[in-house]
Every structure is written in C-alpha cells, then in structure tokens.
C-alpha cells in the first residue's frame, strides 16, 4: 500500500486526493513504525527546511526514511521532501538535512524584470534521462512549481529533469536507484502530473540501464 509521510510540513490533502483519484489506497503515517512497514513511500512537504528537519528528528523519521531507502522501497520526494534528501540547505542560515543524495540546496537567483521569488506557476521539465516514472510523458511537459530554493546534485547522473526560470537552469527532478524526487508538484499538475504519479505506483523501484 502507498504510504504518505506526514511530518507536519505543509498540507498533504492534495497529495492524498491525487493518489485516491488514481484509485490507490493512500495511508498517511507520522511515526517511524509506519514508515518501516511501508512498501511504497511518498515524502511531500512545503515550508522551511530547519523546522521540517526538527520535526523529522523528533519523530525518529529521519532514521526510518534512511532505512526504507536503503531497503529499496520505491520512494517519491516532492518539493521540500526532495530538498531534504540532500546533504545541506542554505535555507534558515544553513541547515543539515538527511544526506541521502549528494549535493546541496540553494536559493534561486533569477535575473531580469520578471524575476520573482518564489518561482510560482507552470514551467517545463526538460527530460535528461529515461526513467519509468516518466513513461508517456512528453519532453517539455508543464508542471506546477512553487519554491524559492532548488537542489544542486553533486552527481550529474542523478539529474532527471531540468527547468529554466528567469535566466537560471536548475534541477527540477532527480532519480537515483529506488528514489525519484521532484521539485514540482505532480499532484497539482493536471493530467501530466497524474500520469507521473500513476507511473510511480507501478514502478518496481529499479532504475533502468541508461544507454
């Protein structure tokens, strides 16, 4: 069964509703045992990194998430959940995060007259490698974004999608082993987003060989 991790970082309603619209039974858990029992995990989140890390540690969820990922459970990060998977974030004066993926999280630095922060709205995901969660998704499809920070993976091979915003190209999705993580909100990205979530539900957690 699909398990959504609740660590008091934003609103999970739209994530749950999107999976329910696909006919999936979604269970929301907020304790380490719930994460340990899961066979498919979604790690959403909106808000600030430091408060989110405090919540995770207090509930022992940091350890449980590391264990689940090490065990090969198909894992989907969304927005703040994606950022927290990396080593550290510049947010809140510098925050140590989970360190499951190599790289850091930095503040967007858009330029030009329309350079607003947060980056909010629909923007295109340029696909950088093949992956089962992107099955039937056209290169350049629009997804819904709302964020002020972005992930900068240390390992270029982890980059799944990139997106351009006001003169800056940033990583908008990553994939490594059984982890897929997006900066955009597939749960609010219309039919294209539903397709990605449906692909995730079917995915066995194995990354295909790249050619």
């Amino acid at each position: 069964m699909l398990t959504i991790i609740d660590y008091n970082a934003g609103n999970l309603t739209s994530v749950r509703l999107a999976f329910e619209a696909l006919g999936a039974e979604a269970k929301v858990v907020s304790d380490a045992a719930g994460v340990a029992a899961a066979d498919r995990l979604v790690f959403p989140g909106v808000g600030a990194a430091a408060a989110a890390m405090d919540n995770l540690r207090r509930a022992g969820l940091d350890t449980a998430i590391r264990a689940a990922i090490a065990a090969g459970v198909p894992f989907l990060g969304i927005c703040l959940g994606t950022q927290i998977l990396f080593e550290r974030s510049d947010e809140d004066g510098g925050t140590e995060t989970l360190g499951i993926l190599p790289g850091t999280v930095r503040r967007l630095a858009p330029t030009g007259p329309r350079a607003k922060i947060p980056h909010m709205g629909w923007n295109q995901a340029i696909i950088r490698k093949k992956h089962p969660v992107l099955d039937s998704i056209r290169d350049g499809s629009d997804f819904y974004f709302v964020h002020s920070y972005y992930v900068a993976p240390a390992n270029g091979a982890d980059i799944l999608c990139e997106t351009e915003y006001a003169g800056q190209t940033f990583t908008s999705a990553v994939a490594r082993g059984n982890v897929v993580a997006t900066q955009f909100h597939a749960e609010k990205s219309g039919r294209t987003g539903l397709r990605l979530l449906e692909n995730f539900l079917r995915w066995d957690g194995k990354e295909p060989e790249q050619c």
Partner: peptide, 8 residues
C-alpha cells in the same frame, strides 16, 4: 472542487 480538479 478539490475532488474534481488536480490543479491549484
């Protein structure tokens, strides 16, 4: 409305 749309 939340049950029928998948956009913000």
């Amino acid at each position: 409305v939340a049950s029928v749309v998948r956009i913000p």
